[in-house]
Nucleic acid binder design. Structure first.
Length: 265
DNA sequence: ACTATTTCCTGGATGC
DNA sequence: TGCATCCAGGAAATAG
C-alpha cells in the first residue's frame, strides 16, 4: 500500500504521539511479523523511551534511548495508528504497544506483507538514495547502468528508495518517458525531467496527505487526498489530463502500469 | 552478476 | 446467494 508520501504522512502524524514517550508494555505481538524470527523484541523495547521516529524510504524507523533502532514496513495493507485502549481492535492487528501517555500504538495488516525489523545498531544496508534529495546526475548514472525497463528500475529499492507502483507511473507521465524504455537508453535531459517529476509528484502527494486507493490511512486514521490528482494511475481508458488521449494499462514486471502512449511516446 | 518470475497473504470486485 | 477467479499500493526468494 504505502509508498514514500504515505509513509512520510504516517511518520508526521505519529510523531507528536510517540516521540519522547516510553513503552509501558507490549500487549500483543504476532511473531511471524518479526525479523529476525524469534528475536526478543518485547524485552528489547519494554521500558525504553522512543527518542525518535523518522522515515527512510518506505520504512518507519524508531530510535530508542539506547541508540538501537527498529523499523516497521507497512507492506501493501499495513496501518500504523494511535488509538485509545478502549477502542475496538481491528482484525489482523499484529502489534499493540502501550505508551506512557495512556494511548496505544497499533499495527494492523491483513495481508501480512509488512514486517517489524529489529536493526540494533546496523544501518539500512543496500537501500538506495532518497528521491527527494537525489541529484539528476546520480539518477542518470544509476538508471543508465541497467538494461531493465525504466519503470522496473524505479521500483527497485536498491536503485532509488521509496518509489512504488503509483508514483513510478505518475512520475514517468509527468516526465514524458515511456515506462518500457530501457534504463541504459535514457538521456541526460530525460533524467533531468524525470528527477524533477519524481520530486514534484512526491512533494505534492505529501502535501495532500498521500494517496488512499483502498487501505491507506495516517496515524490518526485519516485518508489521503492525492488519488484525486493522479494523472495515469488507475485511469485506464480515461482521457489523459495533458493531451485528452486515452490512458493505457499494460503489465510490466508483473505490475499494472498506466501511461499515455501519446505523451510518453 | 544480471534480469524475470514466483511467492508470501487476505479481502474486495467481478463473473457465472 | 454461492462459488470460482482475478486483482491489489511490496519486496524477498527463486529460476533462468
Amino acid at each position: 500500500m504505502p509508498e514514500l508520501p504515505e509513509v512520510e504522512t504516517v511518520v508526521r502524524t505519529l510523531l507528536p504521539h510517540v516521540k519522547g514517550r516510553r513503552v509501558v508494555a507490549v500487549v500483543h505481538l504476532r511473531s511471524d511479523m518479526l525479523r529476525p524470527a524469534g528475536f526478543g523484541f518485547i524485552d528489547a523495547i519494554n521500558g525504553r523511551l522512543l527518542a525518535g521516529v523518522e522515515r527512510r524510504a518506505k520504512r518507519i524507523v524508531f530510535t530508542l534511548d539506547s541508540g538501537e533502532r527498529f523499523y516497521i514496513h507497512l507492506g501493501m495493507t499495513g496501518r500504523l495508528t494511535i488509538e485509545d485502549p478502549a477502542a475496538p481492535v481491528a482484525t489482523h492487528t499484529h502489534l499493540i504497544i502501550n505508551l506512557n501517555h495512556g494511548r496505544q500504538l497499533r499495527l494492523s495488516d491483513p495481508r501480512r506483507f509488512g514486517e517489524i525489523v529489529w536493526m540494533g545498531t546496523a544501518d539500512h544496508g543496500k537501500l538506495g538514495p532518497e528521491p527527494l534529495t537525489l541529484r539528476p546526475d546520480v539518477l542518470l548514472a544509476r538508471l543508465t547502468q541497467t538494461k531493465r525497463a525504466i519503470k522496473s528500475a524505479l521500483l527497485d529499492q536498491n536503485m532509488i528508495a521509496g518509489i512504488g507502483n503509483i508514483y513510478a507511473d505518475e512520475a514517468l507521465h509527468r516526465a514524458g518517458v515511456h515506462p518500457e524504455r530501457l534504463g541504459e537508453t535514457l538521456t541526460a535531459a530525460e533524467a533531468g525531467r524525470l528527477n524533477r517529476a519524481i520530486k514534484g509528484v512526491l512533494r505534492r502527494a505529501i502535501r495532500a496527505g498521500g494517496s488512499s486507493i483502498r487501505d491507506y490511512v495516517n496515524a490518526d486514521g485519516a485518508r489521503g487526498g492525492f488519488q484525486a490528482s493522479h494523472r495515469v494511475y488507475d485511469r485506464e481508458g480515461k482521457p489523459c489530463r495533458n493531451c485528452r488521449g486515452e490512458i493505457v494499462r499494460i503489465t510490466l514486471g508483473g505490475r499494472s502500469t498506466y501511461f499515455c502512449p501519446k505523451c510518453q511516446g
